[in-house]
Design a protein around this nucleic acid. Structure first.
Lengths: 330, 330
DNA sequence: GCAACTTGTGGAAGCGCTTCCACGCTTCCT
DNA sequence: AGGAAGCGTGGAAGCGCTTCCACAAGTTGC
C-alpha cells in the first residue's frame, strides 16, 4: 500500500520496474484512490466552497461561471452553497469556518460578518471575497463610486438635471453596500455640477425587478417626474423600463434609464449601463484562492479593483423636456 | 468517543444526563465533527454531484437553480462539475462512477454514454438524468416532439406555410437529441396539414446565438424566404431575431419567430416560445435523487415527462405576405 | 437474594489513504 | 572482503469518525 501511494503521488523513491508493475495492476483492477480517505489522511478535502446568493442576484451567476472556469484545470472540486437569507448565510459560515470542510472559501456578492471572517483567518482557511469588502482578507471588487459617477456624468452630459435614483434598501438584511456607493458617486457628480439628488427622487427597496418597477412608477407619477433614472443594478433598471412602458412613456425620448452590471439581459433590452467584469471577477477571485492554496500561505489581503465602463445603448438620450428642473444649468 | 458519536447521531441508547454533559462539552469546545472522517467511516460523502454544461446552455442555469432549491434543506452538499467538451464529460464520468466520489449523481442536459450509465448502475451510484434519456435510469424530460408540434401548430394557425427551422447539429459532439425531436414534431404537424418542411429551409449548427443569426440570415436571403422560423431553442430564436433586425425586417409583420425553453431573456425579447419548466425539472430531478438516497434503494427508472406550453408574446403574428408558398392552404 | 435480563458506557477495530520507520539489498570505498 | 552508506520496499501508525463488543450498573422474577 505504501508503495502504491508513492507511485500515485509521483514520489521519486520508486524503482521504474516497480512503478510499472504497480501501474499495470492499477489498470487491471481499475483501481481509484478514495478521495475521502486521502483527504482524511492529508487533512484537506480538495474542495473549494463558494458561498453565493445564487438566486437573488443574476450577476452572481456570471461571476460563478468565472469561478468554474478558473477551477477547471485545477484538482479542486467546487461545492456550491446557496444563500437565500442571512440565517442561511450564518449557517453556512458556521459550517465552513473550519479547515476540514473546504480547503478554501470564496464568498461572492455577500458582505461576510467580521466575526466569521476572523474565525476563518484564525482557522487558517484561505478566503477571498468577490464583490464585497472585508478586513484582513483579499477582495475583488469594482469601484462602485466611480461607476455611479460614470452613469451620472453620462446623464448630466445629455442635459438631464432632474435625475431619479433607485437602489437597494440601505438597511437590507445582508448589508450590501454597493448600491449606497453607487448613489454616493451619483451625488458627488451632481454636486460638482451644482445639482443635487432631490430626496424625493430617491427610492430604495429590496433588490427585485417588480419592486423596482413599482418604485419607478412612483417616481414617474410625481408632479415633477425625473427625466432620467439611474438604477443601481440592471435588474432594477429593467424594472424601471417596464414602468415606463406601462405608463406609455417612450425611452429614451421621455425618460432615460441607466443600469449597472451589464448582465446578459441588458444587451437585449438595449439598456445603457455601467459594465463591471462579472465573469472576470469570479475568475480572478478563484485564481487568487488557488494561488494561496498552492503556496500554503494565506492570501495577501489586497483589494483588487476591477475597472468599470459605460456601455451606451438605447435607453439614454438627450433631455428634450422643457422643464427647468430644480437645479440650475451647469 | 463512542458516546459522543451516539449523541451526535441521535441514538436513543444514551442517558439524558450523559447526553446533556456531552452537549455542554461540545458547546464549550466548539467541537464539530470532521465530515471527511465521518464520510470515510460511513462509506458515503454526503455529496451530490451535478454534471452540467454550465456555460453552453443558459437553460442549464435555471435547472441548476431548481436543483439547489431542492437540496436546500437536505444534508447533502452540491458539487458542480462543469462540462465544456465531450472529453471533459468523460473525465468527470470516469471519476464519478464510483460511490466514494459522490453519493448520487445528477446529469443535466447531457446524454450520458450508455457505458458510463452501466458503470454507475453496477457501482450502485444512484443517478438521475434531467433533460436527457438513458436506459435503466430515471429521467426527467419534456416532450420535445409535443413542443415542436405546439410551436408549429401555432404558426400554421397564423397562416404560415413556408416555415423555416433552425436547430442543433444532429451530429453534435454531445449527442443532444432534443433539437431533432422538436424538428420531428414540426414536420409531423406540417404533414398533417399537407405541408412539408422544405429541406432548403432547415439549417443546423452548433448551439450558439451568433451561429443561429448567421443561419437565419441565410434563410432570409433565399429567393423565397420563409415567413416564419421555428428555432429549437430560445438562444437560437434570439439569433434569428437579431438577423431579422439586421436585415430591416420587422417582427412579426415580415417574419414570425418561435423559440423553445422560455429562458429569462425571452420575456424581455417578447419572444413567443414553447415553455418548458426548467426550474421544476431540476427540482424534481434532485428530489428523486434524494428520495433514492434516503431509501437506499436504486431510483426506479421511470421517465418523468414535464408539460410544455406555448407562450404567445410579440414575435409571432398572422402571415400577411401574399406568397402562395410551396404548400396548399389547409 | 441470586440468576437472568435490560440499559448505558467505554474501548477497540476498521474505513482507505499517507507517511514514517526499519530493514534488506546493492554499491562503493578501504 | 568487510563495513558504511544509500536506495527501495513492506509494514505500522494515525487521520477522526462509526459501530460492534464487552462489561458495569441497575432492574425484574422466582
Amino acid at each position: 500500500m505504501g508503495t502504491v501511494s508513492r507511485v500515485l503521488n509521483g514520489s521519486p523513491q520508486v524503482r521504474d520496474e516497480t512503478r510499472a508493475r504497480v501501474l499495470t495492476a492499477i489498470e487491471e483492477l481499475d483501481y481509484r484512490p478514495n478521495p475521502l480517505a486521502r483527504g482524511l489522511s492529508l487533512g484537506r478535502s480538495h474542495t473549494l466552497g463558494v458561498v453565493v446568493p445564487f438566486f437573488t442576484h443574476p450577476s452572481a451567476v456570471a461571476r460563478l461561471q468565472g469561478v468554474v472556469a478558473a477551477l477547471d484545470g485545477s484538482r479542486y472540486d467546487l461545492v456550491l452553497f446557496n444563500v437565500a437569507s442571512p440565517a442561511h448565510r450564518d449557517e453556512h459560515f458556521a459550517a465552513l469556518t473550519r479547515r476540514d470542510r473546504a480547503d478554501g472559501l470564496l464568498v461572492m456578492s455577500l458582505p461576510a460578518p467580521a466575526h466569521d471572517l476572523e474565525r476563518l483567518v484564525t482557522s487558517r482557511v484561505p478566503v477571498v471575497l468577490v464583490d464585497a469588502y472585508g478586513p484582513g482578507v483579499p477582495c475583488v471588487v469594482t469601484d462602485d463610486v466611480s461607476g455611479g459617477r460614470l452613469a451620472t456624468e453620462h446623464l448630466v452630459a445629455l442635459g438631464h438635471r432632474r435625475i431619479g435614483f433607485i437602489g437597494d434598501d440601505p438597511e437590507n438584511p445582508f448589508g450590501f453596500v454597493a448600491s449606497a456607493a453607487r448613489q454616493d458617486g451619483c451625488e458627488a457628480v451632481l454636486a460638482e455640477h451644482g445639482l443635487e439628488l432631490d430626496p424625493e427622487l430617491v427610492r430604495h427597496g429590496p433588490h427585485d425587478r417588480e419592486i423596482a418597477e413599482q418604485l419607478a412608477t412612483e417616481l414617474l407619477s410625481l408632479p415633477e417626474p425625473p427625466t432620467a433614472i439611474f438604477a443601481s443594478s440592471d435588474v432594477q433598471a429593467l424594472g424601471a423600463l417596464a414602468a415606463a412602458t406601462a405608463q406609455g412613456r417612450s425611452v429614451p425620448a421621455d425618460l432615460s434609464v441607466v443600469g449597472f452590471d451589464d448582465i446578459e439581459l441588458s444587451s437585449y433590452a438595449r439598456l445603457t449601463t455601467v459594465r463591471q467584469p462579472l465573469f472576470d471577477s469570479g475568475f480572478l477571485g478563484a485564481s487568487l484562492l488557488l494561488e494561496a492554496l498552492e503556496g500554503a500561505t494565506p492570501p495577501p489581503p489586497v483589494v483588487h479593483e476591477l475597472p468599470v465602463e459605460l456601455v451606451e445603448r438605447a435607453t439614454t438620450g438627450p433631455n428634450v423636456t422643457t422643464e427647468q428642473g430644480s437645479g440650475r444649468r451647469g
